[in-house]
Simulated assay, not measured.
Amino acid sequence: MTSRTREIAEGWFAALTSGDADRALGYLAEDVEWVNYTPVPGYNDRMPWIGTYRGPAAVLDSLKVFLGMVDVRFEELVQLVVDGEQAMGVIAEESVVKETGQTFEIEFIQWLTVRDGKIVRWKSYTDPSQILRAIEGRAA
C-alpha cells in the first residue's frame, strides 16, 4: 500500500509544482474532500479560495480563484513522508498577489489520503500571515 501511495503522491506533487492542473486533477477521486484551511471571519477570510470543497470541479473552481489573485512564481516539494494510505508533502512556495504586487513566501503541508489509486482527502496546513500581509499590500 505504501508504494502505491508514494507513486500517487509523487505524481500529484510533480503535476502540482509544474503547473499541470489537468494532470493534477486526474489524481483526485470523484468525491475528494478538499480542506484548504478553515475560514475564520475577520482573519483569513480575505483568502477567498479557502474552505472545504467536494469533487474535482469544486477544487478546480477554488484553484481558479487562487490563481486569479496570485501569480505562483516558484513551488517545490521539499519533503515527502508516506505511511500506508497517508502521504504528507511539504511545499515551498513563492508567489505574488496580483492586486498589490506584494510577494509572499510560505511552506505549507499537504496531507493526502490515497485509496484505490486516487486522492480521497486533501488537507492543507500553513501559517497564512505572509499571504494576508501580501493581500493587504504591506511590504515584508
Results as ranks from 00 to 15, higher is better:
Ser3Asn: 15
Gly42Arg: 11
Val72Thr: 08
Thr2Pro: 09
Gly11Cys: 15
Val32His: 12
Val120Trp: 01
Ala87Gly: 04
Met69Tyr: 13
Glu33Thr: 13
Thr100Gln: 01
Tyr37Asp: 12
Trp122Asp: 03
Glu94Lys: 10
Arg138Lys: 15
Glu99Pro: 02
Phe74Gly: 00
Leu16Gly: 04
Gly89Val: 06
Thr17Gln: 03
Val59Arg: 12
Phe66Val: 01
Val59Gln: 07
Ala134Phe: 00
Glu75Thr: 10
Glu107Lys: 15
Ala21Asn: 15
Val59Tyr: 12
Gln102Arg: 13
Gly42Pro: 10
Val81Ile: 13
Val78Arg: 07
Ile131Lys: 07
Glu76Asp: 11
Leu80Glu: 05
Leu132Met: 09
Phe13Leu: 08
Ser62Gly: 10
Val65Asn: 05
Glu10Lys: 13
Gly11Phe: 14
Gly137Trp: 09
Val70Asn: 02
Met88Val: 15
Pro39Tyr: 09
Val72Trp: 00
Gly89His: 04
Val82Trp: 01
Phe74Trp: 04
Gly117Pro: 04
Pro39Gly: 09
Gln86Asp: 10
Phe74Ala: 06
Ala134Val: 02
Glu94Cys: 04
Leu112His: 11
Arg23Ser: 13
Asp127Val: 03
Asp61Pro: 05
Ser3Pro: 12
Leu67Lys: 05
Ala134Gln: 01
Arg133Cys: 03
Val82Pro: 01
Leu67Pro: 00
Gly26Ser: 08
Leu16Ile: 10
Gly42Phe: 10
Glu105Ile: 15
Glu107Ile: 13
Asp61Lys: 13
Ser124Thr: 11
Ser18Leu: 09
Gly19Val: 05
Glu99Val: 06
Phe108Leu: 14
Val81Ser: 10
Ser95Asp: 02
Arg6Met: 09
Glu75Gln: 13
Ile8His: 08
Leu80Arg: 11
Asp116Gly: 13
